[in-house]
């Protein structure tokens, strides 16, 4: 059972099999007393599409395996839903994926929206980058 006092490592995933590495990375970053939560926010219309469901099923199975709680929200306002979720928990760290350069518009928006939360970016080669205030990554 989750409590608001328990620190949460929040992993943001998409409906891609490769996001398994983010869950594994989040699990590695988990400290004693922290809880791992996986969050995926998909557009509402994708609820009736099968595309990506297999990947999400796999990610759910991986979450079960590592003992993490995973939720897939179907919402057209990703940042608002993310804010709502983050307000429910005491998020100590966020883990997200990125392209090889470690930069993207999403990461910049994420950095702006949640300046107080440390964000770890997991690159495709599984290297981890700490996202700085500028939105740039540092290995």
């Amino acid at each position: 059972m989750a409590s608001n006092d328990i620190g949460v490592v929040l992993v943001l995933v998409t409906n891609q099999l490769s996001c398994e590495r983010l869950i594994r990375a989040g699990n590695d970053l988990l400290k004693k007393g922290q809880e791992l939560r996986i969050l995926s926010i998909c557009p509402k219309h994708s609820l009736r599409q099968h595309e990506g469901m297999e990947a999400l099923d796999h990610l759910l199975a991986v979450s079960d395996e590592v003992g993490a709680k995973m939720a897939i929200y179907y919402s057209d306002s990703a940042i608002e839903t993310l804010q709502m979720s983050i307000s429910r928990w005491k998020v100590d760290r966020m883990v997200v994926g990125s392209n090889p350069s470690g930069t993207s518009m999403f990461l910049a928006a994420l950095r702006t929206a949640f300046p107080q939360i440390p964000i770890t970016v997991v690159l495709p080669d599984c290297r981890r980058v700490e996202l700085e205030e500028s939105g740039q990554g540092k290995v």
Binding site: K69, A71, Y73, Y74, R88
Partner: peptide, 23 residues
């Protein structure tokens, strides 16, 4: 599990469906 019911409340108030695991 208040966390599970919080998801119910969220769906009931925001209108966003969600899919989650639950042990």
């Amino acid at each position: 599990d208040p966390d599970l019911w919080a998801d119910f409340d969220n769906a009931a108030h925001k209108g966003d469906p969600l899919f989650r695991n639950f042990k």
